[in-house]
Nucleic acid binder design. Structure first.
Lengths: 183, 183
DNA sequence: GGGCAATCTTTTCACTGTCAAGTTCGTGTT
DNA sequence: AACACGAACTTGACAGTGAAAAGATTGCCC
């Protein structure tokens, strides 16, 4: 009574990426395996290889997708007239809602080094962030400071290091980012 | 012409931890394996197991050691009369100099959950950090903000995301942390 | 000196990533 | 409409990994 699945999956690449997101949110990036993903999707153990070549290839694709999603979210908030604080809140919201993507994005030891799609997506997100502080003295320093603040909060929050508070993460970001970056 | 090494290593636990630090600084936490470490130290592949039980046990021990080292460094700077900015600089310096420890410390998916030695060491470091902002309105928020700022900078720096700048990392921290936390 | 427990080794097992070779299928060509 | 071509997937194999069990070696304490 096997389920008679067709030989061609249809959109295996998408399905594997989604399964990877699911697996990572459950067990972290270390607990994800190609064979396990293949099983979840209902495909032979070497099926994903054809789309990603490598485990590193899969995670690189995931990271690139993550940076693209992030860049979209940031672009959208500036298009809606948001200021720096709104940008920071959007950053944190992305990290919390797309925890799996976010965790992979900043682990270069899991990536295929120098992947063009990844570097392009990352640059897009970086530009969107830097645009929020372009009108300051020493904008480079300001952009690094702003990025550090929200990135640190996001990673600390996601790793559970801030678990003692029961406050709302976005409200916290809005509070201290506002007091630090709005003169 | 085998090297006639004695049956008992002497201090295998220490040696494995050191080898792990070396391996992680080279290939990242994903690229470290128990068998590989055993080889580096010159011991049978199951030797380390007796000291750490698990791969998770090894990494948990490393993380605990890291938090202890960090707490020591922070305590030392307050003992030397340092202010918040000095604390932040010490944090970043630790992350850069003990990159391997630092990378493992904030990856709870690699830890044995609820390990007492780890949680105690982490609390010690947390207390040392929070002590720097105890005299502010809403000290909890201030401590989270300060921690986020330096932690974010440290991780971004270590992952190479800030590679475009050739400035000195400590000087950068001192610059923006000063402008943000000294009234 | 004798025994005991800690330390390390050997063997084995299930599992993983990767490669090479085959099989099935959509798609465009004529 | 038949066909061939290439993309998508499967099958089978291999080396390497983490973990567990059982055996060998040694320092140490009475």
């Amino acid at each position: 009574m096997t389920t008679e699945r067709p030989y061609h999956h249809g959109d295996l690449r998408r399905a594997v990426l989604d399964a990877a997101v699911e697996a990572i949110t459950e067990h972290g990036p270390a607990g994800v395996g190609l064979r396990d993903l293949a099983r979840r999707v209902g495909v032979s153990h070497a099926g994903p290889v054809h789309h990603f070549k490598d485990k590193a290839g899969l995670l690189t694709a995931l990271a690139a997708e993550g940076f693209t999603l992030l860049a979209d979210a940031l672009d959208q908030t500036v298009a809606a007239g948001g200021d720096i604080v709104d940008l920071g809140v959007a950053y944190v919201r992305f990290a919390v809602e797309h925890r799996a993507h976010f965790e992979v994005m900043f682990r270069p030891d899991l990536h295929r080094p120098g992947d063009p799609a990844l570097t392009e997506a990352r640059d897009r997100a970086g530009a969107a962030l830097a645009g929020g502080v372009a009108d300051r003295p020493d904008p480079e320093l300001a952009s690094v400071a702003a990025w550090s603040l929200v990135h640190g909060f996001a990673t600390l929050w996601n790793t559970g290091a801030l678990s003692r508070t029961d406050r709302d993460p976005e409200a916290m970001v809005r509070a201290f980012a506002g007091s630090m970056f709005l003169t």
